[in-house]
Design a binder for these strands. Structure first.
Lengths: 352, 352
DNA sequence: ACAGTAGATGAACACGTGTGCAGTTATAGT
DNA sequence: ACTATAACTGCACACGTGTTCATCTACTGT
């Protein structure tokens, strides 16, 4: 087979290996195999893969070349039994049909990889997510990162008992056992609302996200606050599911039922759907007759066919904070919990 | 603290762990802990979590309740040392800026979760990906699933030596050590091209993907074949990077430099960019003056503002095959390798 | 009454690794 | 030449789990 010499090939074939007297099923190459092949002790093999360990330089390079030839690689799981970090991090990604969540997860995964942390991603709908997380806790995780969605108390408690640090994003958790990083949602939408009022808008509508999500609620709060400052009230309120299709449907009905000249959406996907149905379905002039503003600043928002005015929910900054929190929590598990707030920025484009 | 009494806390030390006196450091709850708390042997605890193991029913329920109280959960890694499956699957996701890859990964993750397999996702650019995969091979993976991108020979060989099954998607691998499932790319583009010819198109352009990707090459082959059947030749050929932005840039130049009335793109993201620049940048009438056809049928293709004619690269079918291959490979590791081909379908919409 | 069997139980081993410990060798310092 | 120290090495243990094995109990069938 190329990487085994002939006499070894007798004992070492692809189907089964004979070690001592016992015949084993073909499994991973182990440190013992390398030790036998290199004619050294197993300890030496382990030390060869441990930086700064006492080991003769020549012996080390001999071991490493033998390991390379056999395709040996220390089993990270067996190592984790020795108190080493597993470097596994579970990531509960919110619904991926929310385009921001998709961008978020992609970037988080890339940054974790660059930091030598390996994300076990849990996706799917929120209902499935809850059930899927529990079995993942069977692995010795360095941490659990939760994006957006809400989880039951049982998961929290199990994490605490298993000593798995929790990091939340997109949702402020009042709990004392979790770090979290979130956007100042109300500040953002208040700012956007004031700007629209200054432009002469008076009849406001809002399309929120799934029931009970604090991100959506907070964004609504900001709008109401800015409106009341100007002596105005919200004209129309509707609820959707943070998706493009949901935005289309809900906005179509809302724009038909109410006379409004400014529509704020709880996220960009919803706003894109609303923009689509306003322009192509209802033939409204945006932004002449109607302003539409989103939240997040996903990639599509800047595409010329949309050119969506929105509030940037800074992705890189948020993820950088998550990695910082993760790092600090691992180096000092007793550190008090942190709540980090990120400021959104109004991105003025062509829809409002 | 919770489940430790005070006097135990005196001896509690961050470095050491005394088993005899039930003093433990800040780590996972273990089967021994549960055994002591429940007053049974550790074997009994292990059996309580093993279906169909001999264990008194009353004892079992007692163990389970104390386990629940302590938050115990068998360590999957330690279990995998006993020959149990780790249920970990590495997923090398192609570049996430390719929207199809993002959809693909999201769906694959969800389906794997539903099947009780936990994906370690490796993302980022292709250059990073290669380096990131190697350390992930330190975990005892059930399989490695590779989407789209190409990997070096070293990764293949290491997987073979470590006995990790390989499953490719989106790229046909001639190797004998990997299963793969791919789309009949050439058939798809040939079909689309014939239809465009029938509609009177004569001057064809093609924007491909990254250099050397077989998916892009195959799609070009199909076009050339259908053209030559009709005695035609390709008018313009350009290369991009499978992204929306890349599609915009390359199509802008290509449409300015050449007179063409039909533009086929190697994927939908590219086609959306091309459509955008054609309509909003160059003010071309699509489909009156110019037909544009994509490949994949991502979610955005069906949005009314695009209404993109494209070739559906069936996501669910592809992923279903991947899971089938995975399942079969795990139950019968000696099974000969399979190459599965999926038929694309022409989705006739408004752009060509 | 007795053998036979099924159920239940804990001790002990195996899995693959990192590392403390004790022992050996080489090198430097006086 | 002698000592102190550093470099090196292998044995043995620990990590948390599943499972075999021998042992023990309880029950069934004749």
């Amino acid at each position: 087979m190329g990487f085994f010499t002939c006499d070894e090939g007798v004992k070492l074939n692809l189907r089964e290996r004979t070690i001592g007297t016992t015949v084993k099923r073909n499994k991973r190459v182990t440190a013992t195999d390398v030790a036998e092949a290199a004619g050294v002790s197993r300890s030496a093999v382990s030390r060869a893969f441990t930086p700064n360990a006492y080991l003769d330089a020549e012996k080390r390079s001999h071991i490493m070349s033998t390991a390379l030839r056999l395709g040996y690689r220390p089993n990270a799981l067996a190592a984790s039994l020795q108190g080493k970090r597993s470097n596994l991090v579970a990531v509960a990604a919110g619904g991926m049909n929310n385009l921001y969540n998709a961008e978020f997860t992609a970037m988080l995964v890339a940054r974790l990889n660059a930091a030598g942390k390996w994300p076990i991603v849990i996706g799917g709908s929120e209902a499935v997510l809850e059930e899927a997380i529990l079995p993942v806790l069977s692995y010795p995780l360095d941490a659990l990162i939760v994006r957006g969605s809400s989880l039951s108390k049982q998961v929290f408690e199990d994490c605490a008992k298993l000593n798995i640090p929790l990091i939340f994003s997109g949702r402020i958790i009042e709990a004392t056992f979790a770090d979290c990083v979130s956007c100042r949602n109300a500040d953002g939408t208040a700012q956007a609302t004031r700007q629209l009022i200054a432009k002469g808008r008076r009849h406001f509508g809002f399309i929120g996200g799934p029931e009970g999500l604090s991100s959506s609620n907070d964004r609504l709060t900001g709008i109401r606050q800015a409106l009341s400052e100007a002596g105005l009230e919200l004209t129309a309120l509707a609820q959707s599911d943070y998706t493009y299709e949901g935005g289309r449907d809900v906005a179509g009905k809302l724009l038909s039922d109410h006379h409004i000249d400014a529509l704020l959406c709880a996220n960009d996907a919803t706003a894109l759907g609303a923009l689509s149905v306003a322009r192509y379905g209802l033939h409204r002039q945006v932004p002449q007759d109607l302003s539409i503003v989103g939240f997040d600043d996903i990639a599509q928002a800047s595409w010329p066919e949309y050119d969506l005015t929105t509030l940037r929910n800074p992705l890189d900054q948020t993820i950088e904070e998550i990695l910082r929190l993760l790092q600090e929590r691992l180096t000092d598990p007793g550190k008090p919990n942190e709540q980090v707030y990120i400021d959104p920025q109004l991105v003025q484009r062509g829809t409002g």
